Simulated scan of single mutants.
Amino acid sequence: MRRHFHKMHGLGNDFVIIDARKEPFEVTAALARAIADRRTGIGCDQLIVLQPSESADLRMRIWNSDGGEVQSCGNATRCVILLTGVQSIESDGGILEGENLGVEVEVSLGEPRFGWNEVPLAYPMDTNELPMAWDDLEHPQALSVGNPHVVFFVDDLEAVPMEYVGPVIEHDAAFPERINVNVAQVEDGDVRLRTWERGAGLTLACGTGACATAIAAIKTRRAESPVRVTMPGGCLIVAWAPGEPVRMRGGAVHVFEGELDLEALQ
């Protein structure tokens, strides 16, 4: 059996996208891992499947490279808008809206959530400053922008061993749905960011991570909206004010398309 797919990326955060609006496509954790494998599959950070929706132009489902399904992905949202031309997307993290501006795509991820049970955390804590620490990383902010994030601000971004501390924090028992880990350094109001993405590891860019970090920087007066967030894969512009949705603007690239031989992945 063969299925048509598109390979796209947003600042190096790459996706395999399968349009299942007319013909259903069933995904298991094993199939998601096989497609995402960079040696024996197509290779991607996330597998994206598009389905019909009754509340938006389409529904987007997201599987990380470890086979786990997650709620939202900002970079994938920009790619789907570029690919399909839609303006509203249903996700498990809420309704996402966006517009193709030509050179860039802008998306709205809705209002961030700061309640401990909205992130979620395993028990009540002050999400503005979690009473937790891992080595030299301590007291992060926690929030949800459709999926859960913690944000640490540091003086030396390169000194943080993300490959070691990222998975430790991701799997901490305080985070029942695991957590995306963002470590940021602010310089003259601009943010430099590295993100350990749950289920995918250290990525070149994370759209929701950029949004969460920009919100945290604005809340603590480290930066003013709109915030320029620079990641290894490139830059995003994030705008937010309390009580309003967070908006993110950046590039999206269609790399190639092809036919996936599902039997070859078994």
Rank of each mutant, 00 (worst) to 15 (best):
1 M>P: 13
9 H>Q: 13
17 I>P: 05
18 I>S: 12
18 I>N: 09
19 D>F: 05
20 A>I: 09
21 R>L: 06
21 R>A: 06
23 E>S: 14
24 P>A: 10
27 V>P: 07
31 L>K: 09
33 R>F: 00
39 R>E: 11
41 G>I: 01
42 I>C: 11
46 Q>C: 03
47 L>G: 06
50 L>M: 08
51 Q>V: 02
64 N>M: 07
65 S>H: 03
67 G>N: 08
70 V>I: 15
71 Q>W: 03
74 G>L: 03
80 V>Q: 05
82 L>Q: 15
84 T>W: 03
84 T>M: 06
84 T>S: 11
87 Q>N: 12
89 I>G: 10
94 G>K: 03
97 E>R: 14
98 G>A: 04
99 E>P: 00
100 N>S: 12
102 G>L: 12
103 V>Y: 02
105 V>C: 09
105 V>R: 02
106 E>Q: 14
116 W>P: 05
120 P>E: 14
121 L>T: 08
122 A>D: 13
131 P>E: 10
134 W>R: 03
136 D>G: 05
136 D>K: 10
137 L>W: 06
139 H>S: 12
143 L>Q: 09
143 L>Y: 08
143 L>G: 07
145 V>Y: 01
145 V>P: 11
146 G>N: 10
148 P>N: 11
158 E>Y: 00
163 E>T: 11
164 Y>G: 08
165 V>L: 12
166 G>M: 08
167 P>I: 02
169 I>V: 11
171 H>M: 03
175 F>W: 02
180 N>K: 02
180 N>P: 08
184 A>K: 04
186 V>N: 07
186 V>C: 11
186 V>D: 10
187 E>T: 14
188 D>G: 02
190 D>L: 09
192 R>D: 13
193 L>A: 01
193 L>I: 10
194 R>E: 13
195 T>I: 10
195 T>E: 05
196 W>A: 07
196 W>Y: 13
198 R>W: 06
200 A>R: 01
201 G>R: 04
203 T>F: 06
204 L>V: 05
205 A>M: 00
206 C>T: 13
208 T>R: 00
216 A>P: 04
217 A>D: 10
218 I>E: 02
218 I>G: 01
220 T>G: 01
221 R>D: 15
227 V>C: 11
229 V>Y: 02
231 M>F: 15
233 G>Y: 12
233 G>F: 11
234 G>F: 14
237 I>S: 15
243 G>V: 06
243 G>Q: 10
244 E>N: 13
244 E>P: 04
246 V>G: 05
247 R>P: 00
249 R>P: 03
249 R>W: 09
250 G>V: 13
251 G>K: 13
257 E>V: 07
261 D>E: 14
263 E>Y: 00
265 L>P: 08
266 Q>F: 02
266 Q>S: 11
